[in-house]
Design a binder for these strands. Sequence first.
DNA 1: ATTGCAAATGATAATCTTTCTCATTAATAA
DNA 2: TTATTAATGAGAAAGATTATCATTTGCAAT
Lengths: 146, 146
Amino acid sequence: MKEPTFPDSPLADLCRERGLKLTGQRRTIAFVLSDSDDHPDVEELYRRAVEVDPRISIATVYRTVRLFEENGILQRRDFGGGRARYEVADGDHGDHYHLIDADSGKVIEFENPELDALLDNIVRGMGYDLVTTRLSVVGRKKAKPR
Amino acid sequence: MKEPTFPDSPLADLCRERGLKLTGQRRTIAFVLSDSDDHPDVEELYRRAVEVDPRISIATVYRTVRLFEENGILQRRDFGGGRARYEVADGDHGDHYHLIDADSGKVIEFENPELDALLDNIVRGMGYDLVTTRLSVVGRKKAKPR
DNA sequence: ATTGCAAATGATAATCTTTCTCATTAATAA
DNA sequence: TTATTAATGAGAAAGATTATCATTTGCAAT
Ligand SMILES: [Mn+2]
Ligand SMILES: [Mn+2]
Ligand SMILES: [Zn+2]
Ligand SMILES: [Zn+2]
């Protein structure tokens, strides 16, 4: 029974700070997430987690992403493939949006303070406070103008 | 066998124009859709369709919304309740966005040319042509300032 | 108006993602 | 170290959507 050994990730610390029980599986999933800079779905997270510690079930991955999301540790994204995708909340960079390449499916992140402000103003103008923005744009690469 | 009788809807005409076979069921679903000004999901469309003509199955509603969407007659929306919702493409009003009331779930439509332009510019600035914008904002009604 | 045929439909099975159940295991605090 | 309480694993169940296939129907050509 070889316990996998790896350092506690920033997310594992966050988990502890929120008073959540830090189990081996959560430590593993937190490690995998901290190590990712893309937007994996649950199946992909499971694949990565199993590589770190085979003693993990997909049910636990589902449970853990839900728990982390409820605690503001993870953000759930919907890029329209039928499965939820996840990324660390407030990673290095702050709030951001996503551009999806129509042909390759590649996800490109971007920030835009003007967009932040405009959305906030629009919603305020309608008598509401902005709670969540769900925005992704699909684009097709322009042919280089010769 | 009483055939339900109702006029051909604008969507039924569109269906014919695209060369799609205009079956009784499609005529009914088109009628129901033309008659709706909200964002029904498939179950709700089925309920409304059955009221017009009981000889219809939910499988056909699923097939028809897919067909209509593939042919640009309908737009599919995702407001995050797990089921797809539909509305007529290019109805009376042009492109628009959706504000969802966080407490009631009510969907409020809005247009904003400045937002249209900004998104277009952002995407273009990243070397892409804008194909689709998927945007909905969740907001909470502001307490009236006393 | 009839006929023929490809396409659509109804009923239901299958699929896919996510959640639930429950017996077993493990994390934390005393 | 032990006791307690929550988490886990494996698989069943749920919910939405698509697929299957025998039967029906729209419609174009007679
Ligand atoms: Mn920003
Ligand atoms: Mn979705
Ligand atoms: Zn991102
Ligand atoms: Zn709308």
